[in-house]
Design a protein around this nucleic acid. Sequence first.
RNA 1: GCGCCCGUAGCUCAGUCGGAUAGAGCGCAUGCCUCCGAAGCAUGAGGUCACAGGUUCGAAUCCUGUCGGGCGCGCCA
Length: 602
Amino acid sequence: MNIFRYFRAKLADVLSEMTAAGELPEGLNTDRAGVEPPRDPSHGDITTNAAMVLAKAAGMKPRDLAQLLAARLLAFDEVETAEIAGPGFINMRLADEFWRDRLTEILKAGTAYGDSALGGGAKVNVEYVSANPTGPLHVGHARGAVVGDALASLLEKAGYDVTREYYVNDAGAQVDALAWSAYFRYLRALGAEIDETEFAKLCPGGELQYRGEYLKGVGKALIEEYGDKLADRDEVHGEWTIRSVEDWLPTVRAVAIDRMMDLVRQDLAVLGVEQKVFTSERELVERGGVDEALDLFAERGLSYTGVLDPPKGKKPDDWEPRPQLLFKASEFGDDVDRPLKKSDGSWTYFATDVANHWDKYRRGFSSMINVWGADHGGYVKRMQAAVKAVTAGEGELDVKLCQMVNLMDGGKPVKMSKRAGKFVTLRDVVDEVGKDVVRFIMLTRKNDAHLDFDMQKVTEQSRDNPVFYVQYAHARIRSVMRKAQELFDAGAIAPETLAKANLDDLTDTDELALIRNMASWPRTVESAAEAHEAHRIAYYLYDLASQFHALWNKGNEDASLRFLIPEQNELTIARLAMIQGVAFVIASGLKVFGVTPVEEMR
RNA sequence: GCGCCCGUAGCUCAGUCGGAUAGAGCGCAUGCCUCCGAAGCAUGAGGUCACAGGUUCGAAUCCUGUCGGGCGCGCCA
């Protein structure tokens, strides 16, 4: 139960009562009246701005209206006090009993606490990673993977029907370059003595783009399946020669992409990411998806053949005007119209991506979320414009841009050279620090802020490491529960039993404050889901964990505040119920992150 | 030149639909372990929310402009 939503409903009742009594005018718009936590807890448990927002329309002074509202709100059993403060806030304090009931609710729900019906089962598509299938994933991809995956889980928790999707860019120049690079490995594996720089000259762009060791496997796989059929051997000199492109490239490309996608899937599995739908750009093109989408543009008069102005501020050295098929993106909020066809007549990446989103819409997703690297920022407007155009305004696309991850080791940046094919892979990092640490840390910043990832700091066992601190809280609770088995039967301290326990002994201010914080978990889930911001969960968990640790520490000074008090069974049971509640809420949050709560620290 | 993102404590960052006296960690200062819950804890100092206007009961938050940083800007994805 989202307590703020609960009291917002009560406020609505009060407002309609007042309208019926003639104290408020008919047809008052009450949308802006909300029930929220006060900024300062000393003001109370919940607060409403209703009097201030409605005063003008009601023709009353805010504080006068607040008086009337407060009197009626006070009539509810749960509301202990209702005071007017500042410009017209109504601060309410809720009965201790109400909070203890929330704890009972948590114990009944377990890790399902915080589940919400907010989404109402609406379908949402979250597309993330979507890295080119040209090699293993590196650390940068890890952030997008985790951000997308956690956002998907968060939306599921908030009641949406979520599909996790990966768009495979298996058409276009990049995968052709991959095929060339794989072909080189194939020829080498056949035993051909081909010089790398000589071969590079034959490649498109005169460069052998992918030189990592990981392509050796593709070369071998090609030999296993096709033997030497993809190359010719000069009978006289015994040298291997390259066949014409159309004879080998489609085959090599297909095998290489297949292999690379296996690699990508394995890397994602290591991170605990499992996407359900893999949409192939090539298949989309082959089954006419692009033609369909662009026909739609043509029908609606949203495309035309024209010439773009040269980009300003950039040296137009090799620029020359060329007529292209353009999409009227500027009619949908973009700055200029965008090309759908290249000068050679083939589709641009944008055109196929329009088809991709059109396809998603037809599969029933009017709500779509894409997670991209920040370097794709310039692409957002045109894609949103395209989604609006292709769905006739019914579809909505939110793009989460992930900023760079600065990989560090003991305060020093880890050097990565993409040119030499030496970059730190996702797998390297996961092997080093573990999946849970990577996942949690990737969510400790807003997606659009730079993130420092220090391999040493993230495994440090100290308060400034949020992963440790949150996990430690959970482990401490599990440890107390284990110890409690020396005092009670396992059945007596099982969550189902604790849910029935008498909690009246929970009277300490810090204990009640802890319960209040737990009770704000459903609201945290809902607001984070609405904002599409999973990182808020990390801050909530850190906050809850430190509140728990503070209470634990008080037990050092004052033995009467400890969780296990010998000879005082009822009090101890109540406190066990409380910390079990904390463990559930932490586990519930970690589940959203795909992080396993630990039983003990090692 | 244009567009997008960002600018909050010495440092790294939170900040809920616009809400009251702007928060956390690190660092700093002070106090606290012969044992019973210290892989530490408690308390405190520290701010022109980049700057200047505007919107209103109320602005770190919304709008306009300026300054500073990052990213992007036809035939790459």
